[in-house]
Design a binder for these strands. Sequence first.
DNA 1: CCGTGATCATTTTTT
DNA 2: ATGATCACGG
Length: 772
Amino acid sequence: MDSSLLADLNEPQRQAVMHTDGPLLIFAGAGSGKTSVLTRRIAYLIQQHNVAPYNILAVTFTNKASKQMKERIASLVGDMVARDLWAGTFHSVCARMLRERGDEIGIDQRFIIYDTDDQIALVKESLKELELDDKTYQPRAILSRISWAKEKLITARELRSRSEHKPFDRGVAAVYKLYQEKLKLANALDFDDLIVECVSLLKDSEAARAHYQRRFQYVHCDEFQDTNKSQYELLRLLSKQHKNLCVVGDDDQSIYAFRGADIQIILDFENDFPDAKVVKLEQNYRSTKTILNAAYHVVKNNKDRTEKRLWTEKPDGEHIVLMETPNENAEGAAIASEIRRLSQSGDYQFSDIAILYRTNAQSRAIEEQLYRLSIKYKIVGGLRFWERREVKDIVAYLRVTLNPNDSVSMRRIINVPARAIGSTSMAAVNQFASQQGLTFWQALKRCDEVGLPARSRNAIAGFVKMIEYFQASALRKSVPDFIKDVLETSGYLADLRNERTEEARGREENLGELVSVAKQYEQREAWQNPVEAEDSEGDDPFADVADDLLTDYPRELGSFLEEISLVADIDSYEEGANSVTLMTLHSAKGLEFPIVLMAGMEEGIFPHMRSFDSQTDLEEERRLCYVGITRAKERLYMSFAETRTVFGCTKRNPISRYITEIPQSLYIPVSMRPSALSNSIPAFDPDTRRTVAPPVPRWADVSTPQPKKLSPQAQIDLPFKAGDKVTHAKFGRGTVVQIVPDNGDAKVSVAFPSPVGIKTLMASFANLEKSA
DNA sequence: CCGTGATCATTTTTT
DNA sequence: ATGATCACGG
């Protein structure tokens, strides 16, 4: 067994695996086999050192990463053994510890988790109560400040005391305080609280501290460069007794400073743990020399990094292709046609290809062009399922059923669908509640005592009755059945059906999807978590909550809600289906693809405008670029558009500075544009931030040779010409009258039968299909 | 109380 | 461009 665990490891990797006792810092460059080392190390502990899996903790940032880790460890040591290993995200680990032991610091273990929308709602409420103006105190800004404080373990009180000369922080501190009270009242914790409260638990409860410190003989943390102060504190507390803290990270891939990740933590680790062993993994097993070279030349421009350079035994590989296009539609078209070419060559499948961009908004133009060429794609992120209105509404019903004191969810649904409980009634009930010192829910139940017209009182009484019915229903029904019950009984579905719009149809479908998600959950749980499962990472977060707390408590519903509170976009990403993957550069971290296309390599897009005035932010963006480049195994494309329409107005962006940092010998510029300007590729002048012609233009032709003057049709690849019959989704069949080129797109005039008449449509939006 | 229309701000990244 | 919020009138 020993030999198989260590067999195919290189020397530093082997050292990392075999250094079991004492703190260990592994600098793991991109593609250096980091996950492999981490999983082998854990397997090694179990098999060679007879450590019980129960005594090992592995923390990651995404569910996907932890799931993957569990699977890989299971394949090394067997399912039954791996079951007892505790592997999860920071948030899920903390949530679980708080469910087990939260009562020791006064947390009701049935707490629910508030997401960003809920948080915003709560901040708005607080602002109103404090009579603070939401223009000077924008809820988002307040919230991010509160979050900033929590990540640094700064309490409302501390924030206030250090805000002497900072009027904004004074306001924030006031909101922070009230916000926390409201959370408490709703028996809710926000994302940051999960960590913060867990740290409190370990600090303030002797018993809990002793329990967990004894238990966790070995603590591991993946993506350590992304940890913030509170998370680091948690790791230190957990590993304090046995002092076996193993962290893996890469300062060059730190891209989450905006949400509190502190790169300094990994850089200071050796100071905090003077006896730490440090291992550097610098051999890359993923990318070609060209790609690695490019990545290095970009990231080396950062000042705040430890110098290191990855190397590989792989060949030089293909040149990077740099594509210039007139606008974002043409960029999408160029990407799409290149993807088609690659797949037709037979060397690559769609699933080998990823398109990465800085912001989600960029995906639309690309999607349209992929769709045009019938290239299958899937998107990670963007409009998320769990954030859709209808889904959130129904989830709010579930939450209220579980916990009627969840004020945010209550407000959300009390009049959705409309049941004649408007703001006047709400205000009255609210006032009554604070007068009598009641919760909102208690006040609702006693609405007869509120001075309201009978009509309103009846409406409220009906609502209260409905919720009470749901509470009973939840106890005897399975989660999916219960959700169906809610959909019907609340009238939500009926309301939706009445709308008879395309949009409502879509919403209805999403709700159907919600039911099937619940079904899947139910099946998975039943299969994975036989009733006795005690400490298996079987994901019933209520497994350890004292039984007396749970009488009359629909625990299945509770754990379902927990699971869906902690999902990330990337968690739903699965390899397999043969389609191109589109996602943000952030989501791409940790993944790899034979072919990567990075779109929108322009100043203002990437680096994003918002980072222009901060050196730190620009360096973070640069690391993001590094992450993007190093996702590629074989071929890398970068594209930029000469003009781009953002917020409805068209801008001209200079080429990204990061491209200019890549040695010219590594890439081949390609112009997808017929205009005269295309004779020179713009180069970035760091002084003026403008593009200038390079000294020696080096041109290669596009894969399919382009004529000097491209007809607009060919340029955007329209499958029809004047005189052809086409079909439009709304207007039906018509005849193309005229095609006028329009800056990489085309205006197409189509004659439809009356009463529609002649319409002029933008080709890229109209989705015209040629018909016989 | 509810729906409509106007105005407005918004878009970086996410557990 | 799109979506959210707000003011007004039914």
